[in-house]
């Protein structure tokens, strides 16, 4: 006969292994993706009706609020995108002004890709923005996933509804579908590869498809990533954009 204390411990362990609450899944998912700092080198492979183009970049992030994307490919070399909380700034080496994006401009595509500037924003927790419901479990590429359904709590969020497939073992997103208020599918994100870095799992290859664009997709690839290492000082400032 199992002792009551052992039984309680086993139940707790089971609850930790298979949390049934959607909120708990989201919390663990977000904790898994949270780094103090992140420095990466990667590329965007954009495919559309005109063919395929590659944009390479260096990215730096601090927490969830600050991010800098510096393009390194010849055509856009020196151009930068800076995110400070919910503000997006564009820097062009040949322009005197730093451009602050706002309103409808945030919905525009980044470099003609399937990502919008809005996709780069969002330091808030999903739980602050959405009501989350666990719809069940599904197999995706042979791996078991939690299927979460998210409905926006208020207007003004980029995607009024989402479906999110979260890996049961790793608590990493594997697939996401983004919907309009009308229920129309807007975009799909598929995670193709996850890499282990310093004992953490990092999404290293994913593909975004804008359902509004015909034959269009953008593959996001991370070639090199460093986590929780010190970043250059003042890197996330408007003044530093011209370095």
């Amino acid at each position: 006969m199992i002792r009551p204390a052992l039984a309680a411990a086993l139940l707790l362990a089971a609850a930790a292994a298979f949390p049934q609450s959607a909120e708990e899944i989201v919390r663990r998912l977000e904790a898994n993706q949270r780094f103090r700092t992140q420095e990466a080198e990667g590329s965007l492979v954009i495919t559309d009706r005109f063919g395929s183009r590659t944009k390479t970049f260096l990215s730096y992030a601090e927490g969830q609020e600050r991010m800098l994307l510096a393009f390194t490919n010849v055509e856009e070399k020196g151009q930068k995108i800076l995110r400070l909380r919910d503000e997006i700034y564009l820097y062009f080496p040949e322009a005197e002004e730093v451009v602050r994006l706002q309103g409808a401009a945030l919905k525009e595509s980044v470099m003609g890709s399937d990502f919008s500037y809005e996709d780069l924003t969002g330091e808030k927790s999903l739980l602050d923005l959405y009501e989350v419901k666990l719809s069940g479990r599904e197999l995706l590429a042979g791996r078991e996933q939690f299927l979460l359904e998210l409905k926006a709590r208020a207007r003004g969020v980029a995607y009024p509804a989402q479906k999110l497939w979260v890996d049961v073992e790793e608590y990493l997103p594997r697939r996401a579908e983004y919907y309009a208020l009308s229920g129309r599918l807007l975009k799909t994100l598929e995670v193709l590869e996850v890499r282990r870095v310093g004992g953490r799992s990092v999404m290293s290859r994913a593909i975004m498809r804008d359902a509004m664009k015909k034959s269009s997709s953008t593959e996001f690839r991370v070639q090199r990533v460093k986590l929780d290492e010190p970043l250059p000082k003042n890197i996330f400032s408007l003044e530093a954009l011209s370095w």
Partner: peptide, 18 residues
């Protein structure tokens, strides 16, 4: 006076010049 023009370049990337 000065203005900054924004647009897309030939490679469908961003372009900006004052």
């Amino acid at each position: 006076e000065r203005i900054t023009l924004l647009g897309k370049n030939k490679y469908l990337g961003m372009a900006g010049m004052s």
